[in-house]
Design a protein around this nucleic acid. Structure first.
Length: 271
DNA sequence: CTAAGGACCTGTCGGC
DNA sequence: TGCCGACAGGTCCTTA
């Protein structure tokens, strides 16, 4: 379930339980995620205090004195807080046990996620080339116009490219383009300043709104199975191909962009 | 260099 | 009911 808002929600949900707490035990049941979990993970992190919990793009960073644990949730990963031991299910690959008896359980059916270690996280190859955070000031239309110059790739693929801007996945890219009134197949380099501004506004609005929605599920975070779909009531186009546009009634179309399903309204979204 | 496609892996759903 | 293909919130790597 993870795009930026879900990762942010996860961060906020687990932070109070683990920040400034010591990892007392690491249990790894399945080492093969996207990359193998480091063999010496126990040695690296047991006895260490998590001094800070941060997010960079869709990565969660667990900072310790000696290095940083990186967790990516991939396509199907989740982290849950357990207040007491319970039998691990099939895809519960890793537990981190803390000095306050809390168990942080990593679960990931498809195993596209990752758990890695970096001595200096800002130099880690996976993080080094990440673009800017969409909710920060530097993410604005001037920046996008500059980096989009001459680019023929579709605007949708462009905003999903995390070397440009991090955290925007298929759902929010699709939704933001609808909100901004931009056809997803438009070449990134052909978008004018006014539309680029609209797009930035739309992306930020959608992400903030989704984080807020996640916030409402936060309350029962420790008990819930992290049910997806809390934002789904607000989806205007994603998953609605063949249904009428909520704005104008035109039947929504779908196409494939960068292997991803893309839904749009031909009359609300112009090239 | 850019852009597009394949690969990784499991679960679920629709059609026959 | 059972089997098969298509598809799913990500993104690195290879190919053209």
């Amino acid at each position: 379930m993870p795009e930026l808002p879900e990762v942010e929600t996860t961060l906020r949900g687990i932070q109070p339980f683990i920040q400034n707490h010591t990892v007392t035990q690491v249990i790894v049941r399945h080492t093969n995620l996207r990359w193998p979990i480091p063999k010496n993970l126990k040695k690296l992190i047991e006895g260490r205090i998590i001094s800070q919990l941060k997010r960079r793009g869709k990565y969660l960073l667990f900072e310790t004195k000696s290095g940083t644990l990186l967790i990516h949730l991939g396509m199907s990963g989740s982290l849950r807080i357990l207040t007491q031991q319970s039998a691990p299910k099939k895809h519960d690959h890793v537990d981190l046990v803390f000095d306050n008896e809390i168990i942080l359980r990593y679960s990931d059916p498809r195993r596209f996620g990752a758990i890695l270690w970096a001595e200096h996280s800002d130099q880690h190859p996976l993080l080094k080339s990440l673009g800017i955070e969409p909710l920060e000031r530097q993410f604005n239309s001037q920046y996008l116009l500059e980096v989009a110059k001459g680019k023929k790739t579709s605007i949708k693929s462009f905003i999903m490219n995390h070397k440009i801007v991090v955290g925007i996945g298929n759902i929010y890219a699709t939704e933001a383009l609808f909100r901004a009134g931009i056809h997803p197949q438009t070449a990134a380099g052909k978008i004018d300043a006014a539309h680029m501004h609209q797009l930035v506004q739309a992306i930020q609005w959608i992400l903030r709104k989704a984080i807020k929605q996640g916030g409402t599920t936060l309350k029962d975070f420790s008990q819930s199975d992290g049910k997806p779909g809390y934002f789904s009531q607000h989806l205007k186009v994603y998953g609605r191909a063949g249904m009428p546009c909520e704005k104008c009634g035109t039947i929504l179309k779908a196409c494939r962009l960068g292997q991803r399903n893309t839904v749009f309204c031909v009359s609300c979204q112009k090239r």
